[in-house]
Nucleic acid binder design. Sequence first.
DNA 1: AAGTGGTCTAGACCACCGC
DNA 2: CGGTGGTCTAGACCACTTT
Lengths: 254, 254
Amino acid sequence: MTESSLTVDAVVSRLSVDRSSPVPLYFQVAQELQRLIDTEALPAGSRLTNEIEFADRLGVSRPTMRRAIQYLVDRGLLVRKRGVGTQVVRSQVNRSLELTSLYDDLEKAGRKPRTEVLSSGMVPAGEEEATALGLPPGSEVFELRRLRYADDEPIALMTNYLPPGVVDVEPEVFATTGLYELIRAAGYRIRVADQVIGATNAPSDIAALLHEKKGAALITMRRVAYDDEGAAVEYGTHVYRSSRYSFSLTLVER
Amino acid sequence: MTESSLTVDAVVSRLSVDRSSPVPLYFQVAQELQRLIDTEALPAGSRLTNEIEFADRLGVSRPTMRRAIQYLVDRGLLVRKRGVGTQVVRSQVNRSLELTSLYDDLEKAGRKPRTEVLSSGMVPAGEEEATALGLPPGSEVFELRRLRYADDEPIALMTNYLPPGVVDVEPEVFATTGLYELIRAAGYRIRVADQVIGATNAPSDIAALLHEKKGAALITMRRVAYDDEGAAVEYGTHVYRSSRYSFSLTLVER
DNA sequence: AAGTGGTCTAGACCACCGC
DNA sequence: CGGTGGTCTAGACCACTTT
């Protein structure tokens, strides 16, 4: 017990903050703490110094210290118990499902992503697309169909629908730039998205595109993304090869 | 503009807090605000009174008001922009993927859930189970196989592995009580879980159990749940009928 | 009783946005 | 420029857990 406390103390004493930095104090503290946890300098199960003393040592106020700790609690790295203390839950960092594009995900994972644009252009919205985007049925929407590769293996067939006027670029651009990046570049800020994940058997045409056999199990993902004003700016229905892709997420009790 | 402000003001003036309640102030405020959003008294797109005046009217401090607002921002109901203000993003409340059991989910949805225990007992851990639970390979673990029904239709086949000694009840109990409830009752507090969602084609034996055809696309979910100390307390591999179930989640930009 | 995290306050200063 | 949210402080009191 004493041994462990001393170790934690020693580790904590390595922390410091830079008050001249534009990075918020609470975030600096959170990042340094996370680094210690990731490197297992603070292994899973170890207890942190209580927040008041911790704040004192770092020279920050208690609310700021609490905010840093809460940030890591929300990410599932720390656990707090009233009357007891704060403990490290685990060291491995599993990124939870985030609001990023598949392209970014693959790139971060070091797999070389590539995109093939199958088609793009205005089409009359079906009932499903119109409902998702909150547009009158039959109105024109922009349809984009792309095939995503990683390391020259097809991974996903992505079909997206956008209200008219959201992105206005040459079709070739979609091969080199992520859709979300383009939407953001057009001045839309996506803050919230609803997703539904399911599964389906591959029909023969989709199977051929994805180098799978007809009937192969595919992961389906439907997503509606909303901008600042609460207006739907993108509706996508994607299918992924289950042999090559899966969704990972970390759940944290609130 | 003036019109809209007046309306919001009128709505906001309906709010109040109960200082004698044990419920935290920030939570009372958040709940009342959420109610106004859910009922569309504050429709999507409407702008909130600035937080300082809002706090004054409710008679709470600004940090408390901010905490209430942040709570709803984290849930994707509100959006804040510095220099601009706070707006309602949307009214529909889509519960995000939470740390609950399928049983609870179904029950809340008003479907009548039922559980059939296929088998339960100690088995030698395979490599997969041992790794997930952090136990030495070949050690004994508790295996539980259940079939979940909703409205007398099979929904999922659930296989769970627990370290020895976590739950010690008669097998019949599993038919009437959720696994997570039992784990909690045994004094474990589950705070974090990692999930991986994928898809697979049903082998004939599983297809038969789930009333599906062989080869039907099923959703797979693997989950490792961790307790306070960061120790794995449960490893589950579940398969769901994609025709009857899907995962819904809401993503919010951080 | 001692120690921990949970809540709340009143005020300060800063950064960004739109006019 | 005025208005907004973002950060930070120093301190108070409370609720829970352990000894």
